[in-house]
Nucleic acid binder design. Sequence first.
DNA 1: CAAGTTTTTTGATGTAAATCAAAACAATGC
DNA 2: GCATTGTTTTGATTTACATCAAAAAACTTG
Lengths: 253, 253
Amino acid sequence: MKTVQLHSAKKNAVACHNCSLSELCLPRGLNRDELELLENSINKTVKIKKKDYLFHRDDAQQSIFAVKAGAIKTSLSTPDGEEQILGFYLPGDLLGFDAFARDRHTCDAQALDDTLVCELSMENFQELCGKLPIMRGQMMRQIGVEIEREQMLLLTLGQMRTEERLATFLSSLSERNRERGFSPAEFNLPMARHDLANYLGMAVETLSRMFSRLQEENIIAVQHRLVKISDMNRLKQLAHHTCRPASDVLPSA
Amino acid sequence: MKTVQLHSAKKNAVACHNCSLSELCLPRGLNRDELELLENSINKTVKIKKKDYLFHRDDAQQSIFAVKAGAIKTSLSTPDGEEQILGFYLPGDLLGFDAFARDRHTCDAQALDDTLVCELSMENFQELCGKLPIMRGQMMRQIGVEIEREQMLLLTLGQMRTEERLATFLSSLSERNRERGFSPAEFNLPMARHDLANYLGMAVETLSRMFSRLQEENIIAVQHRLVKISDMNRLKQLAHHTCRPASDVLPSA
DNA sequence: CAAGTTTTTTGATGTAAATCAAAACAATGC
DNA sequence: GCATTGTTTTGATTTACATCAAAAAACTTG
């Protein structure tokens, strides 16, 4: 349960320009020298075992991380032990921006599975941002993605009821898979029910019931962590049109 | 209800080094030339009337804004017209970072009252970030503040009961006032009940009942938008869930 | 592969908060 | 001043979801 020792393992390194995630990480328009500068700045393939922490709340910020394989969850916890999961980070996602306010992380980051990450030290991050405007733009874009993600979750927690929350989650995970060239209709959930329920602000029992409900309605088929979406249209309907109890059909004023 | 025409009004400008918010905006350690560069980059005192929009969702990002007087709310809305308020921006707060992901704003920003903002165009923002590492650091810090703020709200919406949510909100507004040299025990709420209820993810009626409850318990006294905190300890106890950094030391078990 | 542990699902019941309804209270205009 | 409109509070009722309880799967481990 201790934070993993980083700044290690260069073995098994894959150069950025060969990495399958390069389209996500690498800005276009870097010349040879700039690319080399970037490659030399990154500590490749740090390994984190399942349930180990990438960082803890109040840790001094060392780096920005990019997930290469596996999955990370970030969470805040309260003095009395309640936690709120803030995000799930899958291959291609960047994390660590939370520490910008105080140079210390504001949340915990724990591996949901054995995980590989690239590490960009803050020192190198600063240097890259100073020297390469393109890299700075790319980083700003990633920060924007982080802010947008949190805003969507706020909308979900604040306005939707439980079935809609799950439909929204499944729908956006499906969309994400599609964007990355995986099947949008069939995929494995990277997290346990407990974590997903917490993330979506509901009890595990409620989440389970909502899975059952979507299954009964023939919108999805679930077994364990495998989800098959059989009626994408209806799923997206549930996710988009908030089906208010009484009047779903409002006369357009 | 139209987005205000900006890039105007240099009249009534107050130079940055004379502005009462300078401690919030200005990084330390800028020399004469650097300060001048900053001052020339900023379009001062743009006026927005109550209920006008500073920007809309999908607007191309023109600028980063700093609130000088008044108040701004940002919100997301769903296709069916439900909205979720994401944040309230008071004097000294910066907003506009949401657009980093796509160069377009992801939310709406509306004035809750007649409001003054400073405007820093993205062009100048980029230039400052490139030329002045100190400014870049300051901006990164502000982005971190934004991320942290959203994370706290996620915890609030996901884990707390309604009374706790209100207690947390009042407690942190009080804290904010204290930090800025205003009374932590007596202040005016900058927003209507409707907006606060939405922000805190509850019905207006519930919010009203929670105000009444806190008043019955002699923790606060409210009349309209004026709030007096009569028992700060008990308020903070109720807001106990909230994890704040170093300053928040709770003496009780 | 049986025995234990953890995770997930299903069922019964309780409750916090939403919704419905209306009064009290401000703000605005003529 | 009184009517008009919008905001906030209070009360009665409903409900979506949490909680409690336990069975059923699914992973462990000897």
